[in-house]
């Protein structure tokens, strides 16, 4: 088991009332799983993804990652876990606009203060792996949407994380590119044994999951 949620509750105050964005959510993810999280808009999918590693603080409940409770640890320790063990992929790619492809990919290594030479070596290998070695010095705006998402994927795996959290990674892509990205994520999952937890609206994308969570109104209604 790599990740476990126990009775996760996240409440928001809104117009004097309380909204349960996540309501007693419990699940267990094994190492190497490809988890898909589906559900209608506002069901709490993205909130769950962000809450698991401290980007949103829980109201109550426990999160266990790699055998350790992480819901009650400091911001600094959570930041350290995100830096070393988690990769993020967002729908909007979230690339830094003024950095080139290789510079964007190297950011997680820069945060870990890895030597420049090693950064370049690893970034070059990853870019080669995702087929963008000829776009190393391009800025994000000079890349297609599919290429930008592949750069984001490269950035999410360069520091060899244990788990990738992907929030609608194909949401901005056409069906062909979506399939390409999904195949790529599957390849990463299978070849590198990296656990993936992916939020998606797409039934096609959901089909890639080896474990499926379906949320509605903050509750898991199917898995």
């Amino acid at each position: 088991m790599i990740l476990q949620g126990k009775k996760i509750l996240k409440q928001y105050r809104h117009n004097g009332g309380v909204i349960n964005a996540l309501d007693q959510v419990s699940f267990t993810v094994q190492k190497g799983d490809f988890v898909t999280v589906t559900g209608p808009s506002g069901s709490g999918k993205s909130t769950l993804l962000l809450a698991l590693f401290g980007l949103i603080r829980l109201t109550s409940g426990n999160i266990i990652f790699d055998g350790k409770r992480i819901d009650n640890i400091s911001d600094r320790k959570l930041t350290d876990i995100r830096k070393k063990s988690v990769g993020y992929i967002l729908q909007s790619f979230a690339l830094i606009p003024y950095l080139t492809t290789i510079q964007n990919v190297m950011i997680p290594l820069a945060l870990e203060k890895i030597l420049h030479k090693e950064q370049v070596k690893r970034a070059s290998e990853i870019l080669d792996y995702i087929g963008l070695s000829d776009r190393m010095d391009h800025l994000p705006r000079e890349l297609s949407a599919g290429q930008q998402q592949r750069v984001a994927i490269a950035r999410s795996i360069i520091h060899r994380p244990q788990i990738i959290m992907a929030d609608e990674p194909t949401g901005n892509l056409d069906p062909t590119l979506s399939l390409e990205i999904l195949e790529f994520l599957k390849k990463i999952n299978q070849e590198n044994k990296i656990t993936i937890m992916m939020v998606t609206h797409s039934p096609v994308a959901a089909g890639y999951g080896t474990m499926k969570l379906h949320l509605n109104e903050g509750k898991i209604i199917g898995s």
């Binding site: 993020y88 997680p108 945060l111």
Partner: peptide, 13 residues
């Protein structure tokens, strides 16, 4: 947004 991305990736305050 860039600050958010960096914090998400593990940048400390």
């Amino acid at each position: 947004r860039e600050i958010g991305i960096l914090r998400m990736m593990g940048a400390e305050r």
